[in-house]
Design a binder for these strands. Structure first.
Lengths: 340, 340
DNA sequence: TTGTAGGCGTTATCAA
DNA sequence: TTGATAACGCCTACAA
């Protein structure tokens, strides 16, 4: 079907390994011969068989992408798909194929089950996005496959990560509201609020309040469901009617809160200011558009691939790297001065 | 690192090929021996090396996923990601790995460039989603790789497809509005409107009008940009102020039109009815929720994989299959009777 | 600079 | 029922 090294060698009346050397830019082939080989290879449409190559190489030139979420949850999450876009393009740029897998919950990780991608297709390395069970990380580490984790970090576990500076983001959003003149600022949380991204954003919010001499008030913080921003803000307003602004743990909650507040007759930002987190697409297109914390999601994905490939290509063991991506405040129409 | 057939054979003091036969459920191994082999294989954590296998097999147990769009456009399109979710889960269920690739525009298909996934990793078959250049299909067909195309069909080109019955969908939406009492119904189009999905939906709309004895009026049809539903409907209303309802070529346009109409003081559905197409998530959550045409997107993806794998496993050449998925009308809050 | 030989892990063909 | 041998396509010592 496809031409092989053998075919090329035969056609030129030379040995296979000369062809191999010529095409792989290895020393030991004269320039004339190299040109002849290259020319014929092109003519015959030669493409290497990666499987054959991997047998001796131990390298498959493929990376694995693994998400711990159900595939549909993953795909409907703009944050993760943004990261994935970056991963995909960078992998291609670095000449790696990308295998996609989502770890079904049914997967018996505890029994040491390894995804087929890893155990049988033997991808060179793994990109893990989002939270995953510790058992999984242990198993994968034991397997010796290099991996980089995006947007998740298991405390006390050595792994390459690319994460967001959530505290900084929470700080930026809060400080922005303070600068606009707000003094009573709520935090619309998500689940869980005890650890992970949301907890860190909450911390940033609290730190910013403290830094500006504003008192911490538990009544102003509401844990909530993923898209329950509307309910959360209503709860908070019941407890503290003097609140004039809120930082939401993400844009979904923020937008939901805005919708709900508008239904109660409040105008945004005239009567109430809200800042989100993530800068999803709707943050731009919604009315009013949403002040939020922007994260360069594709950049996170690209960075993860770069680090992974760097590790793969390194001669010697490299130190573990934790890359923290700085978020940026994007000021739009949902925040303004507090009502007089 | 990992146990090989050789290791198992050595441990049992038998020959490699007996082990191979035993583990692959091939005849020619006694039941006792088979059990012994299976047991040891499990103990040693044996997993086959697919690359080695593929060398003799010619099968890589991997499918390729290919999208003709830029990766970010693909990921932000709920229709396509829904299809992808179905593809991913079905591929896994059928024990195939999935390689992901998006064809960059820079790809010189005209020169017969084949994606690395195909030419070097040699996936067994290909899932193509959405429109793609004819050159590409020709090249891939010439390469002999089986492929199934979702949501696209190149006229006069033999290929397995899974598509939507767009005419039926357009018909259903239009008929629904007619049944509600509307007589002057607009069509909010997209680009292109001369061929492809949108054209077929438009046809369905026209057929429904004709079947119910309503005149065709070019003034009621507006081609438009992908998210320009609002502008489109305003154009139409300028030309034909007596319009009381509209079928949009997709939900994005429908939702955009609703937002715009509400800004002009119209209430939906009291003053104007709008039906969409696709049933994206926002169709459920928007206010008012959107009457639309639902398509089981994951089912389309699953079906595509099933057909592809069927073809791969078939002993003899199978006939080309065109699967057409029936859409369903979902009645929500954006459609009602025309104003009195 | 080029060729020879062996091996990567698996399957298939043939012989025992 | 089992074993020996060759082959898949490529790479890497090593020898010429």
């Amino acid at each position: 079907m496809t031409a092989t090294l053998h075919d090329i060698a035969e056609r030129l009346g030379i040995n296979i390994c000369t062809v191999s050397r010529a095409l792989n830019d290895k020393p030991g082939v004269g320039p004339k011969m190299r040109r002849r080989v290259t020319k014929v290879a092109l003519e015959m449409g030669y493409r290497p068989n990666i499987h054959a190559r991997s047998l001796t190489n131990k390298r498959t030139e493929a990376l694995g992408f693994l998400s711990g979420m159900e595939i549909s949850s993953f795909l409907s999450n703009a944050f993760y798909t943004g990261v994935f876009a970056g991963i995909e393009s960078e992998a291609r740029a670095l000449n790696y194929a990308l295998m996609f897998d989502s770890v079904a919950e049914s997967l018996d990780l505890a029994r040491g089950y390894m995804p087929k991608m890893l155990a049988e297709h033997r991808v060179d390395g793994l990109l893990v996005v989002g939270a995953m069970d510790e058992v999984f990380f242990k198993a994968i580490k034991a397997s010796g496959h290099p991996f980089v984790v995006v947007d998740y970090h298991l405390p006390g576990f050595d792994m390459d990560t690319v994460t967001i500076d959530n505290r900084r983001g929470g700080w930026l959003a809060t400080e922005h509201l303070i600068e606009r003149g707000h003094r009573r600022i709520a935090f619309i949380g998500g689940t869980p609020l005890t650890h992970g991204n949301f907890a860190e954003r909450l911390e940033g919010y609290q730190n910013a309040l403290a830094a500006h001499g504003l008192p911490r008030d538990e009544k102003l913080v509401q844990e909530g469901e993923v898209i329950g921003g509307g309910e959360s803000i209503m709860q908070i307003l019941k407890r503290a009617p003097d609140v004039t602004a809120a930082v939401a743990c993400n844009d979904i909650n923020a937008l939901n809160a805005i919708t709900t507040l508008e239904k109660t007759g409040r105008q945004i930002p005239r009567d109430f200011s809200i800042a989100g987190f993530d800068d999803i697409q709707e943050a731009q297109t919604s009315v009013p558009s949403l002040t939020t914390i922007h994260i360069d999601r594709p950049a996170m994905g690209r960075k993860a691939v770069q680090n992974l490939v760097e590790r793969l290509r390194a001669e010697h063991a490299n130190p573990i790297q934790s890359v923290v991506i700085a978020p940026q405040l994007v000021i739009r129409d949902s925040t303004g001065a507090p009502p007089a």
